[in-house]
Amino acid sequence: MALVASRLALVAVVLAIWQWVPQIPGITRWAPIFDPFFISSPARIAAKFWELATTTGDQGAVLKSGNLFVQLWATLWATLLGFVVGVTSGFLAGLVLSQTRTLADILNPYLVAVNALPRVALVPLIIMIFGTGLGAKVVLAWLIVFFIVFFNTYAGGRALEPSLVDSCRILGASRRQLLRTVVVPHVAGWTFAILPLAMSASIIGVVVGEFVGGAQGLGYIITVALGQLEATDLFVALLTLCVVAVVLIGLATRLEKRLLHWRPEHVGGAGQA
């Protein structure tokens, strides 16, 4: 109880500093970081949220009422599409490649090279090629999600115990039965385990895409607000984005727990954004 109280007190202190320290006369001269021009203030941000929620007119410089929801939807939709496409294709590629040894050996050095490449650096390239629409954002999310899912699925396929496969074979399992009842469930476990990371990757792909060359979406709004130095709008869009990210990653984690309640941990592949 005392702990909860002190946590709340800490939040209150931080908010109070954020709100009132910038109002101390002359403070911005030696600590420009406290200028509300840069960091806005909790009261302004709350007021902006309230304004967006209640009014219908065009009051904001960057964010107008109704606009926030449209932008949120654009980001959300691209993220979910990229996630689904990336997870599906990553799973299939990982499954196939882990089961065909020679092909995997041939492609291995290239996979290692691609895995070492910071995928976020490819965002401008994709935007140059595919433009700034929904398609480009889905491609971006896919590009990042695919490799994360692929590498974990592939690691899972390679980690399949030979004795398990041999036992099934001795018991008379056909190749198809083996695939359906042993290989796919095992490999799928590894894919499910990486779902939260894949969701986070999908968000990163979409939002960085919007940062760099967006025409819509929360990431785009954030860059516009940054360009026009509208700190309040930036905070409003950023807070919304953070909530979206936390909720989506939380959902993916729940999905993983639900699908994998029968298994212990299995994350082994490499993955980075």
Binding site: I39, V207, A225, L226, A245, A273
Partner: peptide, 15 residues
């Protein structure tokens, strides 16, 4: 840590 840090880059740039 629940928020992917890359998303906060614009805020860092602003400050």
């Amino acid at each position: 840590s629940a928020v992917p840090p890359i998303l906060l880059v614009p805020l860092i740039t602003l400050v």
